[in-house]
Design a binder for these strands. Sequence first.
DNA 1: GTCTATAGTTCGATAGAC
DNA 2: GTCTATCGAACTATAGAC
Lengths: 221, 221
Amino acid sequence: MAVRAAGTSKPTAKEDILDAAEAVFAARGFEGASMRAIAEAAGVAQALLHYHYKTKEGLFEAMFTRRSGAINRIRLARLDVMLARGQPSVEDIVEALLRPTIEAGHDPRRGGSRFAGLILATGTAEDDWRRDLVARSYDPMAGRFIAALTAALPGLDRAAATWGYLFVVGAALTQMAPTGRADRLSGGEARDEDTDAMLARAVVFAAAGLRALAAAGPDVH
Amino acid sequence: MAVRAAGTSKPTAKEDILDAAEAVFAARGFEGASMRAIAEAAGVAQALLHYHYKTKEGLFEAMFTRRSGAINRIRLARLDVMLARGQPSVEDIVEALLRPTIEAGHDPRRGGSRFAGLILATGTAEDDWRRDLVARSYDPMAGRFIAALTAALPGLDRAAATWGYLFVVGAALTQMAPTGRADRLSGGEARDEDTDAMLARAVVFAAAGLRALAAAGPDVH
DNA sequence: GTCTATAGTTCGATAGAC
DNA sequence: GTCTATCGAACTATAGAC
């Protein structure tokens, strides 16, 4: 669960706090999480959170940038490997975009990504600082994947590539946090916790949707 | 903005409170919204909220079921009209599914649906009562649209139809609350506030994705 | 770096007058 | 049905000992 740089192997209290903060913020949201609950989950005094991260906003930002940075480094590394080998398929690009979020924020208890819901909630928050945090954390990576999709799909203009990217991320992120909804609506034939099966379908769905946007051209009505 | 039954035309304080609750809950989330802020937005004393709706949870549920009920009545009415005329296209089904959420929760100040983000946050909440509220409010309608998609697309098994439905809703809902992200990522060529253009692209994207899921059959890898 | 103790604020909910 | 006033709990943040 922890995200540690190579070489630093011993868990420190400062990182224990980040781990606890990620779990509690993901479960209860920014406003719903309390510094008390995070301190208790980390097994430290509440005052230590303020010593290391100053405010609740500071702790949230440190937690968020640690996890999003780890996810996006993996995404871009996979993209770079593929691009070095030639023109990757749309399916490969989508897979490289989606899988790291599932794996990096994996929750062993529930089988999904605890972090996925937090990204959605943070990106649509009313506060400017939280929306800015998502922009700073994700826009550079997003720009590179939008460029890769444009290269893979002649006919995909910039507006269509942007919407297509946002549709793909939205479709998959909303399914990563297991809610039991797929199980219930399918009578048990689709299982929330089976993120591999969900991802395989998401790749098929997303690649076809992106190809259709490219084929439709700039004027859609 | 208010959702009133036909025949009852005068705004009452009880409904003013629901309107204010929807605005404040949508802007700040369940935990971030306070009964004080809702009372102030409604122009009534805080105690009146408890008189009419007992608790914060009771007010949230009344607000949520009013809006989701209004949206789903429109969705199902459109679906029934189409089915009475014969077999609707996948595009028509998707359009009937997505447009009512944009229109019913429309925010005249920002150009998007304030309610969309609230649905996502409520469906992924940790509390059972909030996830149950989403299930009660949306599952019956979802079941009918999944059945309609299955009828329109031979080859779409139940698991694929369920995931397809959830992908479509997730892709569109995440774009309905304007965050400025499409503008920024596209250099201004895609505009967040232009929900009609977003919806037109979403229909193309979703219909192609659903057709690909049907063509792929039950075994996807 | 980590703790205990607490200051100061805001919250949901209720009592009781009108 | 609507109000004012307030209670008790929970919150973020800080002071100060070790």
